[in-house]
């Protein structure tokens, strides 16, 4: 299973594109934040697909966005 590319996404429907990105993001998010990975992945999928592709290739960017999402989630639930 190689890296997900914009070309691979372009052949899928918008819903399928988010699913493909989510399937790749979820295990990475889970490794950072095991207990809230489903919600955090759901939040991240709101972002542009180009940004999500970048996060898949950049652990630093992903971690930064996960940290931000956790903060937003905690504020929302407070």
């Amino acid at each position: 299973q190689g890296p997900l590319t914009a070309t691979m996404l372009s052949s899928a429907s918008p819903e399928e594109q988010k699913e493909m990105l989510g399937e790749r993001l979820f295990p990475l998010v889970r490794s950072i934040q095991p207990t809230k990975a489903s919600k955090i992945t759901g939040m991240l999928l709101e972002l542009d697909n180009s940004e999500l592709l970048h996060m898949l290739e950049s652990p630093e960017s992903l971690r930064s966005m996960v940290d931000e999402a956790i903060g937003v989630l905690q504020a929302h639930q407070a």
Partner: peptide, 22 residues
Amino acid sequence: SSSVNWPPEFRPGEPWKGYPNI
């Protein structure tokens, strides 16, 4: 409040219906 269900949860292997308007 409808915001209670936010954010939608992504579950691997299931269809993603989180943001149908995007």
